[in-house]
Design a protein around this nucleic acid. Structure first.
Lengths: 155, 155
DNA sequence: AATGAAATGAGTCGCCT
DNA sequence: AGGCGACTCATTTCATT
């Protein structure tokens, strides 16, 4: 498959919680030459194993205080992704998943407040054909939000 | 308050999708001296506005193929966070939110497969006092998963 | 994967506004 | 307080082995 070895897994383990770690520091941790490590990192990027380096910003600081999950029921037949394609482009929708059971999409939505959520639902979701109903769950408090993966010791 | 100005917002906008961008590149984009930009970045970190720099890893590549959302109903009185405190330490639980309506927690869980989800529920959730019931929603397909915030032009 | 040299970037300082 | 420019040191990059 992707031919990912234990050194690669170590690189991922180190980089996952600290994307701005210098290549030199990474090399020191691994006991390897910086250039060798850098080449591995570039390959992980090229293969799409490293998808992106992102900065986690405190949502409060930029006035995105409300988090909610919206279940969206579609009328379109399975395999039809027209609704999803439109929802995908809404920037307030951080995540969009197709879920099992009910023929539903689940969206993770971040807005300034309840008012702007309502506006979003009315102005944007309301205009998408094929949405039958929505069910919104408001988050009162986030206890944990770390999108870190458990990286196994080997594969 | 936090006294975050438009330059700071621009820094966040640039850094959010590219945490490994060099300080020099950042300074060039902003038309400022690198030292001045660096000082701002350090302050954003110190204030907790920048929470972390993380590397997004393709879950498939490290054998974390199954994503699910688990609603967890508690028997404990409101304000009692003993259940949440234990759930928080489970590494497969990436997110944990207190949600409105039903007295529920919502967990975003990533495991290798259905079998390991079952094991997790039995071995870990099953041993936590105060959990009344769980309802699991399996993700069939993730259409979008970008935890980027919409950063306003001003605050 | 290691080396070494050149280029680039980071962090510090004193000074200016 | 925030920004600048110059400096030194660290890091990255690239050609070569």
């Amino acid at each position: 498959m992707h031919n990912i070895d234990e050194t690669d897994l170590q690189i991922l383990t180190l980089l996952q919680p600290d994307a701005r770690m210098s290549n030199a520091a990474l090399a020191k941790e691994l006991g390897m030459a910086p250039s060798a490590v850098l080449e591995r990192v570039r390959k992980l990027e090229a293969k799409g194993i490293i998808e992106a380096y992102t900065t986690q910003i405190n949502p409060q600081a930029v006035d995105r205080k409300l988090l909610s999950f919206v279940f969206i029921k579609e009328s379109t037949p399975p395999g039809d992704n027209r609704v999803a394609a439109q929802l995908k482009n809404i920037p307030e929708i951080q995540e969009l998943h197709v879920i099992a059971g009910e023929d539903c999409l689940l969206a993770k939505v971040r807005t300034a407040d309840a008012q702007s959520l309502i506006t979003l639902m009315r102005e944007k979701l309301g205009k998408i054909d094929g949405i039958v109903s929505t069910k919104t769950t408001i988050v009162l408090e986030t206890i944990k939000e770390k999108n870190h993966l458990v990286i196994p010791a080997s594969l």
